[in-house]
Write a protein that binds this DNA or RNA. Structure first.
Length: 462
RNA sequence: GCCGGGGUAACAUAGAGGCCAUGUGGCGGACUGCAGAUCCGCAGACGGGAGUUCAAAUCUCCCUCCCGGCCCCA
């Protein structure tokens, strides 16, 4: 089930082609670093992508870069650099930052600047089909009067929107104030591309329509983005595509909720944003992902001081349980396979994920599994088979969530730490506690927490 | 004004007619040289008001507060 903004209901997900999913997610305008709000959208659709793959779909995930735009040009002028140079720089940073968030890269990242042929062709089609007109000064507008049913996604009539819209500078050559630019004539000195209407650049909405058509085809399965894009961006994308193809653009529209800071939307224009590059200095990717996925993607999420710290505390519980299971494989086993517990946890996980990607509820199932497993490992009733099955389920879930510790590092360090731990155990046995505590304290300073358990010593990174 | 999303225990979030919500934090126990982890138990809740129902946090209506969209935005 997927909640479809088009119908405002949850619908059964049926892809166009069996076993295949085409998904387009609106990316960012690259004139600054990404912030936690962008990260939310990116991580949410990363989760969607990963889950669809987990359950067997062959997904083609496309996310664009808007690298030609007023704000980029302005910023470039301020800094005295070339606009495309500036956007290329931020695209590089974007990649670094999503990598640091353990995000699976999309299959294709088209850029507006590299899709001009498709864009110009689409503008031409719009004009040819009677949905657009060029003005004498080289702009091309989409004619709102040519469409019959406006506002399907917004669920609002044209009249209502005109009534509430603020006054903006209008081009007197527009036939209708609601007409929007699909091609903008270049001002002197601006980056531009040649076109039948003179040098210029694409309007904001057209690039997505054109790139979708170019990369994925006329009709796609899922179109995603932040819910602040519903109007006008996605609304206009629909109009443009329909003007050209005569059919609808996407079957399922998914929109993630906004991240708020102190009751305000986090946004570049409000200047209240937290850069991912800053956050990642103090928090690991797993914690950030856990924070973002431990709530439903459609609802608002309010960031407050300490939110990430709290997320980390919660997440540690999962980590502890996970490591406990790994350690348990080296201990004398019990004979309980916990088959039912694990099976019902798996079922619950998939039921919740299948219900419009309810990661919050799916994570609850993992916590409950962890409690059961902790109970059984501490009582040593769990079998090795049971521990392996539970680990496998956690790993399966993690292939979607990306919140568990990375095993590789653990294995590398395990050997070294265990030597120190053994020495310390011997000191404790001889009741030389000052030295044993010294080892523990020094390790803690190095970010490694030793924990004495009944049967042995465990360690983890703090 | 119009259109969405929200208001759930100290905090963060699920849930959407009856059944034990999840985590953090708090309190009390078990374990323990100490610390930590873990387990067991406890407290504490559905913004307000009507209504429907045997039964409402969940459905209907009214009110109220917050956030977002209607120029740019994930």
């Amino acid at each position: 089930m997927i909640y479809n903004t088009l119908t405002n209901t949850k619908e059964e997900f049926v892809p166009l082609q069996e076993g295949r999913v085409s998904m387009y997610v609106c990316g960012v305008t690259v004139y600054d670093d990404i912030h936690l709000g962008h990260a939310r959208s990116i991580v949410v659709f990363d989760m969607v992508n990963r889950y669809l793959r987990l359950i067997g779909y062959d997904v083609t995930h496309v996310t664009n870069f808007t690298d030609v735009d007023d704000k980029i040009i302005n910023r470039a002028n301020e800094e005295g650099v070339d606009a495309l140079e500036l956007s290329a720089r931020y695209i590089e940073r974007y990649y670094q930052e999503i990598d640091s968030l353990n995000v699976l890269r999309a299959d294709i990242y088209p850029k507006a600047s590299e899709s001009m042929e498709a864009i110009v062709a689409m503008v031409q089609d719009i004009i040819d089909n009677g949905y657009g007109y060029a003005t004498e000064d080289g702009n091309v507008y989409f004619s709102i009067d040519a469409v019959k049913d406006y506002g399907r996604l917004t669920n609002q009539s044209l009249d209502d929107m005109v009534a509430g819209s603020r006054d903006v500078m209008q081009d007197p050559l527009k036939r209708n104030n609601m007409d929007f630019a699909v091609w903008k004539a270049a001002k002197p000195g601006e980056v531009s591309w040649p076109s039948p209407w003179g040098p210029g650049r694409p309007g904001w909405h057209i690039e997505c329509s054109a790139m979708i058509r170019d990369r994925l085809g006329d009709l796609i399965d899922i179109h995603g983005g932040g819910n602040d894009l519903i109007f006008p961006h996605h609304e206009n994308e629909i109009l443009q595509t329909e003007a050209v193809t005569g059919g609808t653009l996407a079957r399922y529209w998914m929109h993630n909720g906004m991240l708020q800071v102190r009751d305000e939307k986090m946004s570049k224009s409000l200047g209240n944003f937290l850069r991912v590059s800053e956050i990642i200095k103090n928090h690991d990717a797993q914690t950030v992902r856990f924070y973002l996925l431990n709530t439903h993607y459609r609802g608002p999420l309010v960031y407050a001081e300490g939110s990430l710290e709290e997320a980390h505390s919660s997440l540690r519980r999962l980590w502890n349980g996970y490591r406990e299971l790994q350690a348990y494989l080296r201990e004398p086993p019990g004979d309980d396979d916990a088959t039912d517990i694990i099976a019902s946890a798996r079922e619950r996980f998939h039921t919740e994920m299948g219900d419009d990607f309810n990661t919050r509820a799916a994570i609850s199932a993992l916590f409950e599994l962890t409690r059961e497993m902790n109970r059984m490992t501490s009582a040593a009733t769990l079998s090795h088979q049971g521990a392996e099955d539970a680990l496998r389920l956690l790993q399966e879930a993690d292939s979607v969530l990306g919140i568990l510790p990375v095993d590789k590092e653990v294995a590398e360090m395990d050997q070294v730490v265990s030597i120190l731990a053994d020495v310390r155990q011997e000191l404790r046995r001889r009741r030389i506690f000052d030295l044993s505590d010294l080892i523990r304290d020094r390790l803690k300073e190095a970010g490694i927490q030793l924990e004495d358990a009944g049967e042995g010593v465990k360690w983890k990174k703090t």
